[in-house]
Amino acid sequence: MSEAATDAAPKRKKRDHRIDALRGIALLMMLADHAPQDVLNRFTLRNFGFADAAEIFVLLAGYASWLAYGRLILRGPPTGGWALGVERIVRRCWRLYLFQMVMLLVSVLTIRQWRHYSPVPVDFLEPELAHGHEWIWRVLSLQALPNNLNILPLYIVLLLAFPVLVFLWKLSPWLLAGASLALWGLVNSDPTLNLPNWLDPDGWYFNPFAWQFIFTLGMLAAIMAGKREGNLPGPLWARLIAGAYLVFAALQCFPYESWNLPSLRPLGDMPPADKSDLAIWRWTDALAILLLVQSSVTATRLSETRVGQALALLGRHSLEVFSFGTILDLFARLVMNSFGDGWIIQILVNVLGFAGVYGVAVWLDRHRRQAALMAGETRKEAREEAKKDRSAEIGDANP
């Protein structure tokens, strides 16, 4: 190949690891937050802002959904289009549903067995799930969503609604943003607008009619970043506002009492920002973080370090890491409840937890690479066979 041809060849776009790394951080924070006795949850996002890992997770779910399915739908046949996009969304939702069922069944059966040997507080398992079999149908039909097992059903509902969001966006991005904001506002004015939950008279803890807004914001952010090589527009004034808001949120939300420190809250003891209906304080917090990360060259460099790559590895396998982490959290809570939460238990639980989820991510990534390599070899063999067939046809045509 000539030097000119080499220069003219398009360069392969370098992967942006910031979103994966941020999602990896959110997964590790969830791992700590879901075990109340874990001392590490004193250092997670919920102590330094209105939002916590859940808002980051759903915001990035909307971002990733556009990259995975939105662009596929817009590409059109034969390599894309509505039919293929909807098919992949349904397959993904089915996978999410299976993981939800496995996590829930493992949780219920584990707690039922554990309490034969050691007392288990009632808040580990809703009373309706503790006895009998009526709960099985309720769980299978997503009518019953226990604590710590309610975010994947939210993701399923939002993902099933994703084609509607794409359709509205094609009509007008402002129509999509306005409709989504209006629905969020309606829910916050009337919290009874929710899906039913057999375990909670107030309905789903993550109200999907409210949480669709942060999912939509993630989708719109991905569209905007796609026009700028993966970067969100980050003018100085926007970054200053986002940074100032996060400083205010940290000062307002920090648990001074737990650290025996004098309060520095600018607004005093304000009412807690409602999580179920996604109070405005919460989604603005998550959006500010996304803006600062996706407009930062420094964040790009950090995501390419060894630590950043380890976090990105977790983020690329978020479903499996989250699900395995949820089961590990259950055992951590049971162990700490039965044997105490001293330093030896703390170190053991956290080392095994972090090593466990990272090991799962490494194994999955290696398996994915091997599958891609085998698929590449298969395609190469097919191309070689096709060349041989064409050569034979030419030979037959020219005896």
Rank of each mutant, 00 (worst) to 15 (best):
K387Q: 12
M374E: 13
W66Q: 10
V187Y: 01
T326R: 01
R115C: 10
F124T: 14
N231V: 04
L60R: 12
W198T: 03
Q370P: 01
A312C: 03
L149P: 09
V166Y: 10
V86Y: 10
F209S: 09
D285E: 09
M101P: 07
R42T: 08
E126A: 14
E229F: 09
A68E: 08
G226A: 13
A26P: 04
Q113T: 14
I241C: 02
A51T: 06
L176G: 04
L313N: 09
W94Q: 15
Y155Q: 13
A372S: 03
V90L: 02
A161L: 14
R369H: 01
A26T: 01
R366Y: 03
L232V: 09
L314I: 00
T79R: 08
A312T: 01
F322G: 02
S2Q: 08
L291K: 06
L334V: 04
L109N: 07
G49M: 05
F99I: 15
W137L: 13
L261K: 13
W114E: 00
R369N: 03
S2W: 09
P191K: 05
D33I: 10
I89S: 08
R23G: 05
P10W: 05
V293H: 00
L154F: 11
G85R: 06
P191I: 02
H34Q: 09
V90E: 00
L291I: 10
F124E: 15
A372M: 05
W169T: 01
R112L: 15
A244H: 04
L168D: 04
A35Q: 09
W198R: 04
R228M: 05
L158Y: 06
H317G: 00
L181Y: 04
A249D: 07
R115N: 11
A51V: 04
S338L: 02
V90Y: 03
V164I: 13
R88Y: 06
L149D: 05
L158I: 11
G226K: 13
M270R: 11
R95L: 15
F57T: 06
D285V: 02
S107C: 13
K13P: 08
A210V: 14
N398W: 12
M270D: 07
V297S: 11
K275E: 10
I151D: 06
Q370M: 01
R390F: 13
N47A: 12
L314W: 00
P191W: 03
E134H: 12
F124Q: 15
Y117H: 15
V307L: 15
G234V: 05
F213N: 08
A26E: 01
R379H: 07
L98H: 15
T305P: 07
V362Y: 07
I56D: 08
T216H: 07
L302C: 05
G218A: 01
G395C: 10
M219P: 04
D7W: 08
G395L: 13
P271H: 08
V108R: 01
G81H: 04
L160S: 10
M30D: 01
N47C: 11
A9Y: 06
L140N: 12
S141P: 05
